[in-house]
Design a protein around this nucleic acid. Sequence first.
DNA 1: TAAATAGTGTCTTTTAGACACTATCGC
DNA 2: GCGATAGTGTCTAAAAGACACTATTTA
Lengths: 239, 239
Amino acid sequence: VTEADFLQDYDAAAFDRPSVTVDLVLIGLWGKRPAALLGQRAQHPHAGRWALPGGFVGIDEALDTAARRILRDKAGMDQAHLEQLYTFGAVDRDPRGRIITVAYLALLNPAAFADARAHAPTLAPTLIFMPAPGPFGGTVRALTMAGEDLPLAFDHGAIVEAAMQRLRGKLDYSDIGFALLPDLFTLRQLQDVHEAILGETLNKSAFRRRMIDRGWIVPTGTYETDTSYRPAELYRVQE
Amino acid sequence: VTEADFLQDYDAAAFDRPSVTVDLVLIGLWGKRPAALLGQRAQHPHAGRWALPGGFVGIDEALDTAARRILRDKAGMDQAHLEQLYTFGAVDRDPRGRIITVAYLALLNPAAFADARAHAPTLAPTLIFMPAPGPFGGTVRALTMAGEDLPLAFDHGAIVEAAMQRLRGKLDYSDIGFALLPDLFTLRQLQDVHEAILGETLNKSAFRRRMIDRGWIVPTGTYETDTSYRPAELYRVQE
DNA sequence: TAAATAGTGTCTTTTAGACACTATCGC
DNA sequence: GCGATAGTGTCTAAAAGACACTATTTA
């Protein structure tokens, strides 16, 4: 068995290798709804369809490094929560050849989301997603601002779906939600983020209790300005 | 920007490509403790150290298909819960060259675990892990049956750690725990699985309540035999 | 009978939901 | 004052933990 195993491994290494890319799901909030940044493909295959920003992984480049580089090149961005999502490796996922892609989830706070749109105005129009209510269920669709369904390229629909599921799954037991907020935020804004991701409304007092008891956020003693109603206290993440 | 982007992509595709492998973390229970199947490397690099079973991904083979193939070849096994874990892509993770590995978590029930050991007696001695108490914390170590630390090859320690974290994280909100049990099992066995993975003891009546109220398991009306004490009722997973 | 484990009942504690209530801003 | 939103208090419901208790087997 040993030699056969060795030869099998050797053969596989000596022959064709797949290309490896990194694709980013850049997520921010558009109003009170989750949105991703996609670009419309100009060329075949899938010309006219919408695709995630991505690029090939250099031979001397770590996966995380490639994701950071693509984030910088495509979105002009260094400030973002970035985490590996899932690796998509169906044989026929890209008609140009065998391309395995490692998908990353990138969360942009409002300023970063605006910067990314300014940096890549043509390549990255925003889309809005409709997560069905409930913590894990619900199919994700990409929509225009007007609410029309957008066709996605390759398997990018499945990738966006995986991103939303990851976000929903980690929201209430990790600090991932804060990545979508500015440094100073109100409890209402935090609740808006959670409601946007989960796709359902949450109980106000229970939410505030949970968030404060968790010890992740600190009241700053400063307050909103320029409101036409009672200003809310600003919180920040406990460092 | 468009043409530059195109050329950059083109260059990356035309030049060297990384090799892509799949590595499996085969997990079962040894007594009441989680254990994985590893093989001792015979050759350099990392000769003598212990490594996960794995292999190269064929150019016309999906990642999931490669994982199933390696499971079959290395463990003689078709019955196992298999899920993609994480992709490890540091540049220097393998001194033989640029090799990106997609790690999979494979859960074996007691019969499958025994079969795998019988199928690969030399390549796959069992090791036992020591998860520190608590739902997410604690470093994972590979130990011999006698309790001595085992040196792992490459970044396989980090891969095993990721596997245990995934298992711990999904245990109480998914049906992943049943993959480590036979088709018919007692509530005590189910609790043993949870305690082994979490590394802490659980409250008996609360655990039984939760499991039964969840509706995932069904009492069969049959009971253990050959016990020297009161036999427990056998349950099965709701199909 | 004793020893061992299965399985239940119940009280307490904690956490979440419902929802009304007060507080503070601009106008 | 009114309208709007921030923030609190309190009751209820649900879930989890503690822990003693009963039940059923073999020896």
